[in-house]
Design a protein around this nucleic acid. Structure first.
Ligand SMILES: [Mn+2]
Ligand SMILES: [Mn+2]
Ligand SMILES: [Zn+2]
Ligand SMILES: [Zn+2]
Lengths: 148, 148
DNA sequence: CTGTCTATTGCAACGTTTCGCAATAAGCCT
DNA sequence: AGGCTTATTGCGAAACGTTGCAATAGACAG
């Protein structure tokens, strides 16, 4: 039923699962087909919705549990949007952070190099290695801060 | 029924509300009595629970709506824990951030001075004024990063 | 191909928070 | 004290996830 083979790093998920004593199921295949077509970010609810398009019998808890195992395999990583809701970074996106302006509501990505400055500041003060992609940093953007 | 007067900044909330055309209700009084006894942080659910102790007829949606109003007045500010769930900073706590280690599960506060280093880094790279208290920064603590 | 083992699923219930809407009651003016 | 206006409440439903449990079905060995 699948027209094309999955692109890396999704092409061998089945074997990677079995190698860990886990199982390859049709439900997991659906989730992975959808993820392979996603472009970087998906929320849990969005993913459930898109899976339901392919397979109307999709059950939310199964999708969320699949996301948990894929996160253990390092194929997705969850983070949190400005409202704290979960969102998933889907490989192969480059590691990056998110900025959100509470005033105008706009969001920006914080590239790896610029994120490094933040990481350095925390490492220096606390020895803390921040996972910059995990939470969305909230504040005011340059423009909104200027017009205050 | 109240034994003691509320301490500042809670003592004049009723007038502050009325000055804005808003109303002073028994439900709001309950929420504020509980907040005045809280020591810095409360989650929405905790607050609902504590209100129910004083008034078993407490309704969650009323508590959450009251929190919205109090946030507009600047008496509380919401943030997000490591899992993205809302938590409220109750005045008069000093502005501060939160660090959470995803490996050992410990959390620390990030005092104002040390948070300034992070804020400076973002201001320099993006002109972004971070609200450091809004989200919990997740990563690995010094000890966990060392034993990797 | 069959049987065993147990990871995974479906389902239903729960926890937290938001929303719409009709009924209630603060606040204010006379 | 009585009446008007409309902010607020209570309530039911919904959105988003998580969890426990019994039934199902992958994986693998014989
Ligand atoms: Mn927020
Ligand atoms: Mn998280
Ligand atoms: Zn802005
Ligand atoms: Zn740690």
């Amino acid at each position: 039923m699948r027209m094309t083979a999955l692109p890396p790093p999704w092409d061998s998920v089945d074997d990677r699962l079995r190698a860990r004593g886990l199982r390859w199921t049709p439900q997991r295949a659906t989730v992975i087909e959808v993820l392979a077509e996603a472009d970087g970010h998906v929320s849990g609810a969005e993913l459930v919705e898109r899976c339901r398009l392919r397979d109307p019998s999709t059950i939310p808890s199964t999708v969320y549990r699949t996301l948990d195992v894929l996160e253990e395999l390092g194929l997705v990583r969850h983070g949190h949007g400005p409202d704290g809701r979960e969102e998933f970074h889907v490989r192969p996106v480059e590691e990056h952070g998110h900025l959100h302006c509470a005033e105008c509501g706009n969001s920006w990505e914080l590239g790896n190099e610029r994120a490094a400055a933040v990481a350095d500041a925390l490492r220096a003060t606390d020895g803390f290695e921040i996972d910059i992609g995990h939470v969305t940093l909230v504040g005011r953007c340059r423009d909104c801060a200027a017009g205050a």
